[in-house]
Structure formats: structure tokens, C-alpha cells
């Protein structure tokens, strides 16, 4: 075990997978110099055939990922900021997510799209989106949103070795979290939520960058006599529905914390699943803590106001506890 930052853990996974399988190739804008550090050293180590700096041409890059994967390669495509997924969205939505079905299962697309997401750093509305709800809705994409360095590494490896396209979203600024990363090789399975902390009174389901404030909120609540269980989704597609339902069956209460905009958020989906399949175990209404349906403003006061944080989570849990039979 060693303490590493999330970005370092991702970098390690990329190094190890490229060393392990010569069919893994990686391309994207400025992946050579690596602005975020996640692709650092790959170009020097694996050479310009397998690691390529590209022009700013997102619509082609996403389409080329499809073609190269169909041509037998395992593609890692770095899209820099998640907002630029929109620029390359056509091939993601119309090709990547659909080709397997349309060809009757003939085409397999082992593609991992990497992008930084989320707000909180005054990068304004075109560099701070949290677009996983959109990706979840396409149907044909796995969506991984790691919260810890350990999971980031394990999920990246699972994505690269997988047979289907995965969008791997790395929490930007605040996501440079540190944590223990095992030395030995491991894979983190898709579709299994991690229990960040066990509890009995309320389940807090958190996604990506929201896991840390959720854990801190749980700690604070603990001191006030409220026992919160924190679940980290790790992947949104596939989603660990059973794991979430098991936890809610135990606690009877659910708060979902999500950095996406409220309308059709991942939290909305999770709430719907629990309302449909776990209604009987609920002692209180489900609470979603999301971002209002607005573009991200630049000014820090206005941005902070929108984002869920420890205090808002604690507040939501308390309202839930107060409004329901103990």
C-alpha cells in the first residue's frame, strides 16, 4: 500500500495496461505533455505509434475511437474536459452506444473515454459540466465515476480490459484526492457500490466527487447521534441497484448526493429505482441533493451556492430524520 493521488493512480493503471497489452492505444489533445498528469510519461514509454497527440477535432476523435476499436485495438480516448464530449457527441451517441446492437452483436467496442468533470474551480459554464446523466441515458455505455485513487485505478483497468465502451469521468479539481492504493494487481468490478462507511439510520448514496463530502457529513452526524451509511456508486452503468436497496432496507432512509443538475440526474434515477423496488422499506421520503437546473456560474460565491457540500448533506439528513418516525 502507498498513498497516491487519484490522478497518479489513473496514470499507473494506464502504464500497466499499456505494458500488459500491446493492443491498447491512447490518443487525445495534448496527451503527450499531459495537462492533468493522467497520461504523463506514456508517450515517452510507449512511443508515438501508440500514444498520439491529436488536433482539436473531437467529432473525428470519437468516431475514430469506434473505427480503431472495430479494427481490433483497445482504445483509450482522452477528451480533456467532459464538456468537450458534447463536441464529439455524435459518434458517442449514434455509433459507439449503438453499433453492437445494430450489427447484431458483430462489433465489439473496447473503448475507454477519459474526461475530467465537475465544478468548483471557477472554470465557468463550458468547463464544469457533470454530464453522466446524459451518458447513462444512451444505454450502450458503461459509466465509471471513481471517488478514490484505489477505485480509480481498478475501474480504469476494468474499463480497458472490457469489451464495451466506458466513459470514465475523473473528478477534476477536488478529485485530486489522496488515498491508499494496493501495490499488487487488482481490478475493481463494475456494478458494485462500495460501502464507504456503515450505518443504520440513513443511507447516503454519493457519486464521484460527492463521496468525500458525504463521508465527512457522516462523520459529523455520527457525533450527533445519527448513524449514516455511505455508499459510493463507483459505476452508474451498471448500477448496483441491489446494493443500494439492501442498504435502504436496513436504514429506511435515503439521501442521494449528485453533482449533476437535478432534472433527470443520476440521483433521480436512483430515487426512482428505490421508490419502485424498495418503497416498503422507506420510513421517510427520498431526498435528492443535486445542483439546481442552471449552467455553472463563474463567481465563486454563486458557484459554491449551487454545489452540494458537507453542510447541505448534514442539513438534508437532519430534515429527513426529523420528519420521520425514529
Amino acid at each position: 500500500m502507498a498513498r497516491k493521488r487519484l490522478i497518479q493512480a489513473i496514470n499507473e493503471a494506464l502504464h500497466e495496461e499499456m505494458a500488459r497489452d500491446p493492443k491498447v492505444i491512447l490518443f487525445g489533445e495534448d496527451v503527450e505533455i499531459s495537462m492533468f498528469g493522467d497520461t504523463a510519461g506514456l508517450h515517452d514509454r510507449f512511443g508515438p505509434d501508440r500514444v498520439r497527440n491529436t488536433p482539436i477535432s473531437e467529432a473525428s476523435l470519437t468516431g475514430m475511437a469506434v473505427g480503431a476499436a472495430a479494427g481490433g485495438y483497445r482504445v483509450v480516448l482522452h477528451m480533456m474536459f467532459a464538456n468537450f464530449l458534447y463536441t464529439g457527441f455524435d459518434a458517442i451517441a449514434n455509433q459507439m452506444a449503438k453499433l453492437r446492437l445494430m450489427t447484431g452483436g458483430q462489433i465489439e467496442l473496447p473503448i475507454t473515454i477519459v474526461a475530467g468533470y465537475g465544478g468548483g474551480r471557477s472554470t465557468a459554464a463550458q468547463h464544469s459540466d457533470t454530464p453522466y446523466p446524459l451518458l447513462m441515458n444512451l444505454g450502450g455505455l458503461n459509466v465509471a465515476v471513481p471517488a478514490t485513487p484505489r477505485d480509480a485505478k481498478g475501474l480504469m483497468k476494468t474499463a480497458i480490459r472490457g469489451r464495451d465502451p466506458t466513459v470514465f469521468l475523473e473528478a477534476g479539481g477536488r478529485g485530486g484526492e489522496s488515498g491508499e492504493v494496493p501495490d499488487e494487481e487488482y481490478l475493481t468490478p463494475f456494478g458494485e457500490a462500495a460501502v464507504g462507511r456503515e450505518g443504520t439510520d440513513v443511507t447516503i448514496v454519493a457519486i464521484g466527487s460527492m463521496v468525500r463530502p458525504a463521508m465527512r457529513a457522516a462523520k459529523l452526524l455520527d457525533g450527533q447521534g445519527i448513524s449514516a451509511e455511505v455508499l459510493d456508486c463507483r459505476t452508474l452503468v451498471p448500477l448496483d441497484e441491489d446494493g443500494i436497496l439492501r442498504s435502504v432496507a436496513k436504514t429506511g432512509r435515503l439521501v442521494v448526493v449528485d453533482e449533476a443538475r437535478d432534472r433527470c440526474s443520476a440521483a433521480s434515477h436512483i430515487a426512482a429505482v428505490v421508490a419502485e423496488r424498495g418503497f416498503g422499506s422507506l420510513a421517510a421520503p427520498i431526498r435528492r441533493l443535486t445542483v439546481p437546473d442552471t449552467a455553472m456560474p463563474y463567481a465563486p460565491v454563486a458557484e459554491k451556492h449551487l454545489l452540494p457540500d458537507r453542510e447541505k448533506i448534514v442539513g438534508a439528513v437532519k430534515v429527513l430524520m426529523a420528519g420521520s418516525a425514529p
Partner: peptide, 11 residues
């Protein structure tokens, strides 16, 4: 500074 809740009303 702008009002903290300025953004939603501008959408």
C-alpha cells in the same frame, strides 16, 4: 460580489 443565488434566475 454577485448575489449567491444569482444564477438560476438567469437561465
Amino acid at each position: 460580489l454577485p448575489d449567491a443565488d444569482r444564477a438560476p434566475g438567469l437561465m
